[in-house]
Design a protein around this nucleic acid. Structure first.
Lengths: 330, 330
DNA sequence: TTGTAAGCGTTATCAT
DNA sequence: ATGATAACGCTTACAA
């Protein structure tokens, strides 16, 4: 009835415990016949190696840590939700587990990561919500702890690994789509953000439209991230003759969308992140390929764990446009 | 530069490694003076006990496992999102970590849990999304693995620990609130669910209104969980003279809310779960106290870990009504 | 109060 | 191809 161990199993089969360990870790070093015998015994006894013992011996925990970003304003959380699910699945496929932690700010996050490292609790770290001036990647790198970020470093070039979504490419794609559909001019509603995600998305619109500096000013606005702000922005752009816009977020897009409907204007709004809300109200939106991101994050991190000194990897993935039939005139 | 261990520290301080271990685990067994000396050395060296070694010795991992439920239809996911965050925080405060896994169905979940148990990877399990006929609690109990469920067992009485939200009480509260505000009759839009969550919420409405069986039929409907269905249900109830409704979900409520607005009727809709969408459009909703639930889940589970044979604990917490000023006529 | 010894369950190294 | 031996770093007796 008690848990079998290497020793008890070895006694039963009549081999040394080392042989059993070899069957599990280096099957080629053991003869096919005894391998069969051992495997059968393992199966019969339901034997599984002890995690703790293995970790103590190998100095590998097969565990990765990630901070659960500050809970649910929810609207953006949808992306992280999908990412987390994909991440856990991808890691699980490679025999790794994800343990979570929460932290009030970046410095608290670093404290926790340092403690994890010192107590040898994890093999690597996944970073999210990177921002300009982010100290974390370098700090963790200095701890000699493998790390990969979901998100580019927005100031200097990163000497650490990262995977990110190419917001500019996504916005450009959506913008071209609207132009091809005959909408003109195509506007943009973004954030007052000069360095990070917001600037990146704005750049995609500017590139795709090829508008002059003057046109860019007329056909775009920068707002705080809320539906109300999105609605006001849409009102302003309507005055400029803009009926089709790409937005930096679903939150803004929802407001713009509502304003269009209220005014009875036939236009088109594209949001960003393809949140549940967007799906629910039939809003077109740019979907981040969280599944792909998660796979690359895991592969990159495991690669870094097995080769701490290798060249840094940077991966940029395009979002995909979820085009929906929008009943913009109710 | 290398990681300090008990031995290296002991050598530095000039005591046996045992003394250091005692300082950490049974401080009262060591003299105040040497304790100070040791603590200073620990601080200076940045020493932390190795997780793996400690786990191997004590047979406790300080790790709890939870399945990340199948990703994001999103609308409901908001509750789980908040719960997960609160859970990780509550567990962290007690020195426990949460590791996640994903599974296609209940039986796959059990397989993974079994493997965790066999490899001594976890101390306990948190179960969510319990449903009628749920095999998991008993199965895990049979594995002699501490388990607590977020969600009642909906068929038989549970001999396992659980924490749940009292949906009936919440709906009753919201219903009384609408009645007090002068709305009459107050309707209910729920799910075709005879045994579980849906029936529970329905019961709260029936209790608070005191309607006859006939009235209950006229003033309530049961729909699949979608905004469209909610809108259709609202249309039907409007014909019966119902302008105020409580809904079993925000999803239904959003549809009902939209229908009210489209018809230009001044009424009131209350949803369930207080999702981001509800907050965004100004919809009143019943909020599950996920923070409290998480705290109780952790306390209960840790209690069960330290006392496997104790009496089963059942905790029921009321949701709170988030009343919002609804501009139901645009 | 402090030190000594044993063992938790593995895997790596070295012999056979 | 297989087996014996020695860690991995800690905690819980028990002895001094």
């Amino acid at each position: 009835m008690k848990k079998p161990t290497l020793d008890t199993l070895a006694a039963q089969v009549g081999v040394s415990r080392q042989t059993i360990s070899n069957v599990l870790n280096k099957p080629e070093k053991v003869s096919p016949q005894t391998r069969q015998r051992v495997l059968a015994a393992i199966e019969a006894a339901g034997y599984r190696p002890s995690n703790a013992a293995r970790a103590l011996r190998t100095q590998r925990t097969h565990t990765l840590a990630m901070r659960l970003s500050n809970a649910g304003d929810g609207i953006n959380g949808a992306v992280m939700d999908g990412f987390l699910h994909a991440l856990v699945t991808a890691a699980g496929l490679r025999g790794y587990r994800i343990t979570l932690f929460t932290a009030a700010d970046d410095s608290a996050e670093l404290d926790i990561i340092r403690e994890f490292r010192d107590s040898k609790a994890i093999d690597g770290v996944i970073l999210t919500d990177t921002h300009a001036g982010d100290q974390r990647p370098n700090a963790i790198h200095d701890l000699r702890l493998p790390v990969v970020a979901f998100g580019r470093p927005w100031d200097r070039e990163g000497e650490h690994d990262w995977v990110d979504v190419d917001g500019a490419a996504g916005v450009a794609q959506a913008t071209r789509r609207l132009l091809d559909d005959g909408h003109t001019p195509v506007g943009f509603i973004g954030w007052p953000d000069d360095t990070g995600v917001g600037a990146d998305r704005y750049a995609g619109w500017a590139r795709a439209t090829g508008y002059s500096a003057d046109q860019q000013r007329r056909y775009s606005t920068r707002q705080l991230d809320s539906p109300v702000a999105g609605g006001e922005a849409m009102a302003k752009l309507l005055d400029e003759g803009v009926t089709a816009v790409v937005c930096a977020s679903d939150s803004l897009a929802i407001g713009a969308f509502g304003r269009l409907r209220d005014k009875g204007v036939a236009g088109h709004v594209v949001g960003f992140d393809d949140t549940p809300v967007a799906r629910m109200i039939g809003l077109s939106s740019l979907r981040q390929p969280v599944h792909e991101v998660a796979k690359h994050v895991v592969e990159t991190l495991l690669g870094r764990i097995s080769d701490p000194e290798g060249e840094p990897r940077h991966i940029l993935l395009p979002p995909t446009l979820q085009a929906r039939t929008v009943a913009s005139t109710s």
